[in-house]
């Protein structure tokens, strides 16, 4: 089983087309991770704000209650069902028959799924900021939006960056399920190498190493971002 690993590696990845396939898959994996992250943060922000919104006037109160309920249902659904099921449902159940590219379905489902987790992270982050910050902003005559987006949320983001980093790592690894809807990501590439060379060990080892590498790079980047944002603590 373990004999001649290097020979098998050269056979599959150097003389064979394994490297090409893996690189193609790598690009797709990174692409899906990045786009899903952006969608996830956008949706997460929206859902977090919907969840904490409180109205003052009568119309505002009704509007905010509806928002709270929408956010709750959204988060329950996407956290409460497996991402593979969401993917299969979205592609084979709805968008596939309409002729939508499975790659786009992959972006959206992973983004929406991630959004549910990010929403809870951001909500926690916003609520961890001292109420006095909000009051100081409003007492200067700043409207709710400016207070939120320029004062509260930047501080919240700084606090939640480690948790967001975790979410990014989970997301990168979770993209490995898009093969279920025939998107050619890294995992799918490895499986295609396996089926031509009848060897599972080497391609899967390479695959694991590739994911590890991406995650390490992502961890490094998040760490740098954290240090950059903490400049106000040091001065």
């Amino acid at each position: 089983m373990f004999d001649n690993l290097s020979g098998r590696f050269i056979d599959q990845f150097v003389t064979g087309d394994g490297l090409d396939l893996m690189m193609k898959g790598l690009v797709i994996t990174i692409e899906i991770s990045a786009i899903a992250l952006i969608i996830g943060i956008a949706i997460g922000m929206l859902m977090a704000l919907l969840k904490i919104a409180k109205g003052k006037t009568k119309a505002g109160k009704i509007f905010c209650t509806i928002g709270n309920v929408i956010a709750k249902i959204y988060i329950s659904f996407f956290r409460g069902t497996p991402v593979v099921v969401q993917l299969l449902l979205a592609y084979f159940g709805i968008f596939g028959p309409l002729g939508v590219n499975p790659l786009y379905v992959g972006f959206c489902v992973l983004g929406c799924n991630s959004g549910a987790y990010v929403a809870e992270i951001i909500r926690g982050g916003i609520q961890s900021i001292d109420k006095g910050q909000y009051e100081a902003g409003r007492s200067l005559g700043l409207p709710y939006r400016a207070t939120m987006f320029r004062i509260i949320i930047p501080q919240a983001i700084k606090n939640i960056l480690p948790a967001l980093g975790n979410e990014l790592i989970a997301l990168i690894k979770e993209t490995s399920v898009v093969g279920f809807i025939s998107v050619f990501d890294m995992t799918r590439a490895a499986r295609s190498i396996i089926s031509t060379h009848y060897d599972a060990l080497v391609p899967y080892l390479v695959l694991a190493g590739a994911y590890l590498l991406i995650v390490l790079v992502a961890t490094f980047l998040v760490g740098r971002l954290e240090r950059g944002l903490s400049k106000s603590d040091r001065g």
């Binding site: 001292d130 100081a136 005559g141 004062i151 501080q155 603590d233």
Partner: peptide, 26 residues
Amino acid sequence: DEKCKIDKHRQKMGMVFQQFNLFPNM
């Protein structure tokens, strides 16, 4: 009053807090 745009009036009422509440990100 519900119809009153409070932000406009708050500009004319400065407030200083016990805990300072400076914005640490600025």
